[in-house]
Design a protein around this nucleic acid. Structure first.
Lengths: 244, 244
DNA sequence: GGTACTGCGTAACAGATTGTAACAAAAAGG
DNA sequence: CCTTTTTGTTACAATCTGTTACGCAGTACC
């Protein structure tokens, strides 16, 4: 499976490093940050599964950053603060936070909550398409994420089945990134049932589905240019993708 | 848009009624329950968006019920308990709970957390359309909810039968949200008679009705663009809807 | 260079799900 | 009461999706 990646945002150097080490020990990949600019840089470069966001950030307000992040995407956010009155917590929720943890906190408890939120949330930069995404465009093609409509470069509608559309969405959410069959299977499974994901990954269903989608998108399905095979890994959407 | 429905599980009658009234006042639909059997019955009959689950339930353990629910489905669960040590909270998370609230609690804070989890979680689409809604508009079409009049993009009236109109209203109340046949059947049944709803859902009546409505709304009923099929789930209205 | 193994492409098939024409029954209107 | 409309049921067709089996290409090993 993919290793979840946290973004730990705190202007307190000691706490940031402690959290970074602790979560790395828990099996997470961790990016530390201390300002809004560093948050933006990290999210540009990595796929972030969850943000731990301190409320007090020197010149900046974690609440404002949280609200701003919420206008752009749907990544889970847990706010961390020394302030813990009910009113302040509700401000955090109103800003769009998924959870709220008061300092000082038990790291093991924080880890449990991080895992609970990760289990629940649609991982923003993971295999589900971003909330803000309306229309994906790639090589003259387009997919309207909300209606499911796919148009070929000539502008005419192309009819995809439900599974074909789901596969295309997973690929579009991760352009240029090779996806393993397990990752594709998980993205396609609404319940993320482990047994069903494993069955799909180990069988040929993903391969057949990729072939069927290629048949509809590729000029020459025998020499695919959009959906390429990464031997020993899986498949990759090998083109630039823009979204509105 | 859609009214979220809570399942409030507590064997304490007073607290259960207090929570029920409080959340109804907050705009939620609420089902009360006090045992595992009542939970099962409610979830069989309704679509539950979130469960508030007390840890202490007379003969039953909320933790065990939580873990059992987690093997079957993914509904968000907030556990409520007088016990609030870190270890007990982690037991709750380990059992699959999304959040944990210690008694006594501030109802406003609880509501904020419920809303945060709902924002995050799989929000079940409610099938009730707003009574205040006057005219729905979608892709050039319009439906006046009060008079039942439907107008095509050219402005001329289109005659729909009573059931066709009811189906269209249910779809318009939940744009972009796939609806199961059971949900459609329940929305169309004024008495919400369980037996009749089940009969309609298991037969082909909904499918035939969808086909008839498509025949009146779609430019090409064989390649529907407004009412799309979500294979294995049901049907979805795949377009933007505005209402006055 | 030859052989064996692995991974991938894909045609064909089977089962499940959905589309829909036709008909019957129920409901509504005159 | 008769006619028309609406709605549910039935039966068959079409579509979707996973599985199976076979072939081919790539890779490793001798």
């Amino acid at each position: 499976m993919t290793i979840p990646r946290l973004l730990v945002v705190d202007d307190d150097t000691e706490l940031r490093e402690m959290l970074t080490k602790f979560f790395q020990g828990q099996g997470f990949a961790v990016c530390p940050a201390s300002t809004g600019a560093e948050i933006a840089a990290a999210m540009e470069r990595y796929r972030i599964d969850l943000i731990l966001l301190d409320v007090m950030l020197g010149d900046e307000s974690g609440l404002d950053l949280c609200a701003q992040l919420r206008t752009e995407q749907d990544v889970p956010i847990i706010m961390v603060s020394a302030l813990s009155s009910d009113n302040q917590r509700m401000q955090g929720y109103a800003a769009g936070a998924d959870d709220y943890v008061a300092k000082p906190f038990n790291p093991d408890l924080l880890a449990a909550r991080v895992k609970a939120v990760l289990r629940r949330g649609n991982r923003a930069a993971s295999l589900t398409y971003r909330k803000s995404a309306g229309v994906y465009r790639f090589e003259g093609w387009s997919l309207d994420a909300r209606t499911g409509e796919v148009r070929a470069p000539g502008g005419y509608l192309v009819s995809l089945s439900r599974r074909e559309t789901a596969l295309l969405k997973a690929l579009l959410a991760n352009p240029m990134i090779p996806l393993k069959r397990e990752e594709i299977a998980e993205a396609l499974d609404p319940d993320r049932d482990p047994q069903r994901v494993m069955d799909a990954a180990e069988g040929r269903a993903i391969d057949v589905l990729v072939g069927r989608l290629r048949g509809k998108l590729e000029a020459n399905p025998k020499e695919p240019r959009l959906i390429r095979t990464e031997r020993g890994v899986g498949y990759v959407l090998a083109c630039e993708v823009t979204q509105e």
